[in-house]
Amino acid sequence: MTAKIRYEDVEPGTELPSASFPVSRATLVQYAGASGDFNPIHWNEKFAKEVGLPDVIAHGMFTMAEAVRVVTDWVGDPGAVAEYGVRFTKPVVVPNDETGALIEVSAKVAAKLDDEARTVRVDLTATSAGQKVLGMSRAVVRLA
């Protein structure tokens, strides 16, 4: 592991650089192929509406993958992520238009966990269209 952030250089409250991730219908088709999750709620509007959704929604795991990029981009080495968990609270609704949806992610160091293992807990916030889409979104990261 070669994290580029030093344990000594962060404190509870340290903010990570935030980021926004666009998601279109094409993104979801590509993610379906890469992940093997072909549930039609992620690409078939008619089906999505029949099962009571407002429109096609993003894969929860896609949103989870995007959110942790704020952590891996910050720490440099994705192998420094020791734990990562989320709750899927609201779907990311992806309209069939030019812009699609946007997932906005911010994160901050919530606690320094272990001075020897040099681990910190990072709490993430992910929203789309003003709604919180992930809850209890936390990562444990090993710093340098």
Partner: peptide, 29 residues
């Protein structure tokens, strides 16, 4: 590519090795 993540640790074995991994690693999820 599907999640739009250009971190070289996922695609470039040399970049992954420079981080101490024996080959390219996979994104966390």
């Amino acid at each position: 590519v599907a999640v739009g993540d250009a971190n070289p640790a996922y695609t470039d074995p040399e970049a992954a090795k420079s981080l101490g991994h024996t080959d390219v690693i996979a994104p966390p999820t």
